[in-house]
Simulated assay, not measured.
Amino acid sequence: MLVWFVVLCWYDVTQRRLPNWLTVPGAVAVLAWAAATGHGVPAFAGAATLFAIYLALHLIAPAAMGAGDVKLAIGIGALTGAFGVDVWVLAALAAPLVTAAWAIVVKLGSAVRTVPHGPSMCVTAALAAAPVMV
């Protein structure tokens, strides 16, 4: 999982996009792992809910939320959902806050207008799930 997150973060920061070949297989792997370990229902619920929220945001403001982030929400929602509602909520709420903080810091120091959201999704999901994964 951590390798997937690192690759996603690197790609989003350097290329400013999250391609299907990175987001979709990871989401499938997380859902398969969750189903195999008896966490399929909460993982699917987490994936569907986070996907729906991100899709709505993307449709409302496509420039603010990329389609790659919407697809990444499936894997992130599944992973965090598999560990419980509290982990899912923590990751779901923390990711936009981390992105906003990052954007403020970047805006103060440069002319860059946007920051990628994928790294915040990955970092907050990993940190939220870490205590229950050990």
Rank of each mutant, 00 (worst) to 15 (best):
A52W: 07
R17Q: 14
A95M: 14
L127V: 15
A29N: 07
V3C: 12
A43N: 09
A92L: 13
A91M: 07
V89T: 14
A92S: 14
A45G: 05
V13E: 11
A67T: 08
R17F: 09
A111V: 14
A43G: 06
R113T: 15
W33E: 01
A43I: 01
W88V: 09
G84V: 12
L31H: 10
L57N: 06
P96D: 10
M121Y: 02
V28A: 15
V85D: 11
A126T: 07
A129R: 07
W102F: 12
G68T: 06
A125F: 02
A29V: 15
L55K: 03
T23Q: 07
A130N: 03
G77L: 03
K71H: 06
V87T: 15
M121W: 03
A103T: 13
P119Y: 07
K107C: 06
C9N: 10
T80Q: 03
W4I: 14
V85F: 14
A35F: 15
P116Y: 10
A125T: 10
L8D: 04
V123G: 00
V30G: 10
Q15K: 13
V24Q: 11
F83A: 08
A82F: 07
T37E: 14
H117D: 02
L55A: 15
R16M: 14
P116S: 13
L59W: 14
G75Q: 03
H39S: 06
T80M: 04
T23N: 13
P62N: 03
G66I: 12
C9W: 05
V70H: 10
G75V: 04
R17Y: 05
G109E: 05
H117R: 04
V85T: 15
V132Q: 11
L57S: 05
G84Q: 08
A56H: 00
A64N: 09
V30W: 01
A130R: 03
V24C: 02
R16E: 14
L55I: 02
L18N: 00
T124P: 04
L90E: 12
V70L: 04
V28R: 08
H58Y: 13
G81M: 08
H117C: 09
P62D: 00
A47D: 02
A61G: 00
R17G: 12
V134Q: 07
V105S: 02
A130M: 11
D69E: 00
A95W: 01
V28N: 09
L50T: 08
A130C: 05
M133Q: 12
G109A: 11
A29M: 14
L31R: 00
A32K: 00
G109H: 08
A32R: 05
K107Q: 12
R113L: 13
F51S: 05
V87H: 01
I104P: 00
G118M: 06
A47P: 09
C9P: 00
G118K: 03
V24A: 13
L79E: 04
D86M: 06
A34I: 02
L31T: 04
L22K: 11
K107W: 09
G118V: 14
